[in-house]
Simulated scan of single mutants.
Amino acid sequence: MIGFPHASAFRDRHGKVRYRFRKKGLPTVYLPGVPGSLEFAAAYEAAASGAKPLAIGQGRTKPGTINALAVAAFESADWSALAESTQRNYRGVMERLRRDHGDKTVRSLTPEIVLRLRDRIPGQAARNNFIKALRWFLAFAVARGWRQDNPASAVVKIKYRTEGYHTWTEAEVAAFEKRWPVGTKQRLAMDLLLYTGQRSKDVRLMGRQSLTGDGIRVRQSKTGTELTIPLHPRLAASLATVPGDQMLFLPTQYGPAYTATGFYNWIKAACREAGVAECSPHGLRKCIATRMADAGCTHSEIMAVTGHKHPKEVETYIRARDQRRLASSAMAKIGTDAERDLANLPNRLAK
């Protein structure tokens, strides 16, 4: 193991160190680059998601095909402008589409075909993600004259109810803290996620370069928003345990930062050991937003920490706080001191 689940290193017959991904139920994939590089991370994420690598010779694409569209898109400035997480999601969608339909032409896609492709995908969230990614690639095709319209634009988003990632309760936070006390890397990870309110990607890359005065400075990878968040005393206590010569706060055992999948799996393992298996890294971002709402923070105050762009994105936390507050006020007005007199008469009910 090299810090990436199901990935291992070996020497080939020429003595060169190589890496491969092997997991039951998924194809074996040889990984390029070295652990910690973007090339390695992209290949690892694709292998872990089940996306099969292209067959040898498939890179010689025919003009106008879905394969050719993928190659052109991945090499474009438009692609490099996307956030890394967006690239990862879109690449997974396109690679699966290439695997089954790469030799078909982009012009052959119609709204009816897009719908059929969508409906074959299990899960409503995955179906919406497929349409979102395909819209981007086909908009790219339209901009370059590959076709005149975007058939994915005609497919509406599926509406469904979901609570998303589970929000950590205070009891779950306490259970994790009990199992992983200050001084452990797991506790530092939780404190960074909870007391900065940032996404996993930004927390994974935090280090001494992020510290400024008595706060942590972050440029959010997803939105580009720049934030400076004051150090909470609990986070300061955890950071005080980091060795002085260590730049990255949460390195893997081999030094570089975790990949998205590696970090998620590591936190999930720590949660299971703490007896809070339902919890995940993103749930701590929701937990701190809930805490701030319960403390009476305004939309703007919460957004100043989380970096959300629009008030409606934090409205859920404000609305839940107000509901509890109003319900408590309403029940308190009923009173419980004495049983109220009824209007019933001795021998019959009152009208």
Score class of each variant (00 low, 15 high):
260 A>C: 09
247 M>F: 06
285 R>Y: 07
280 S>T: 13
285 R>A: 04
280 S>A: 15
246 Q>K: 13
184 T>C: 02
238 S>T: 14
219 R>Y: 04
214 D>K: 15
231 L>T: 05
245 D>C: 02
208 R>A: 13
237 A>G: 08
211 L>H: 03
179 R>I: 04
218 V>R: 12
289 A>D: 03
211 L>V: 15
256 P>H: 12
217 R>F: 10
254 Y>L: 13
283 G>L: 02
274 A>R: 10
193 L>P: 04
270 A>F: 09
180 W>M: 08
283 G>P: 03
206 M>W: 03
216 I>E: 00
253 Q>T: 15
204 R>I: 15
290 T>F: 03
268 K>N: 05
245 D>N: 14
193 L>F: 06
198 Q>P: 06
273 E>Y: 11
250 L>Q: 04
214 D>V: 02
197 G>K: 11
196 T>L: 00
232 H>K: 11
287 C>P: 00
230 P>D: 07
196 T>H: 01
268 K>Q: 11
213 G>V: 04
265 N>I: 00
257 A>H: 13
239 L>S: 06
235 L>N: 02
269 A>R: 15
281 P>C: 04
229 I>K: 05
196 T>P: 01
207 G>F: 09
215 G>D: 02
211 L>E: 14
257 A>Y: 09
222 K>M: 03
254 Y>W: 13
293 A>Y: 06
280 S>K: 00
197 G>Q: 09
247 M>S: 13
277 A>C: 10
234 R>K: 14
232 H>W: 13
219 R>S: 12
227 L>F: 05
241 T>I: 06
214 D>T: 13
181 P>R: 12
188 L>E: 02
243 P>H: 11
281 P>G: 09
245 D>W: 01
207 G>C: 10
227 L>H: 06
258 Y>T: 07
271 C>S: 05
188 L>N: 04
279 C>D: 11
276 V>F: 12
228 T>C: 09
247 M>E: 15
183 G>A: 09
234 R>Y: 08
242 V>I: 12
206 M>V: 02
276 V>L: 14
280 S>M: 06
179 R>E: 09
202 D>F: 10
280 S>C: 14
269 A>S: 14
185 K>E: 12
245 D>P: 02
